[in-house]
Amino acid sequence: MLFFSFFKTLVDQEVTLKNDIELKGTLKSVDQFLNLKLDNISCSNESKYPHLTSVRNIFIRGSTVRYVYLNKNMVDTNLLQDAARREAMTEKK
């Protein structure tokens, strides 16, 4: 649940996804499989991959995402460490 929890904090933030097609858009929602939904997407290599022209709103299956670029100040690393520890603790139990 940690990543689900984590991505929820990024809602309404701009993120860039990369699975060869690089997408940039506003994260609208995320579910427990880390499927993502972006709004106002733009494709940074659209000339190469025009497949998503005239698509603004997109659903991405979480399992196919390779990277999500995050702005550094959108992440509270200390808190994230704590959250990860808690997660590990609950799994241990």
């Binding site: 699975n19 097609i21 997408l23 997407i41 998503l52 005239s54 698509v55 603004r56 709103n57 997109i58 659903f59 991405i60 299956r61 196919t64």
Partner: peptide
């Protein structure tokens, strides 16, 4: 499935 985009 990789992505599903809503066609404007």
């Amino acid at each position: 499935v990789v992505v599903c985009g809503l066609l404007s």
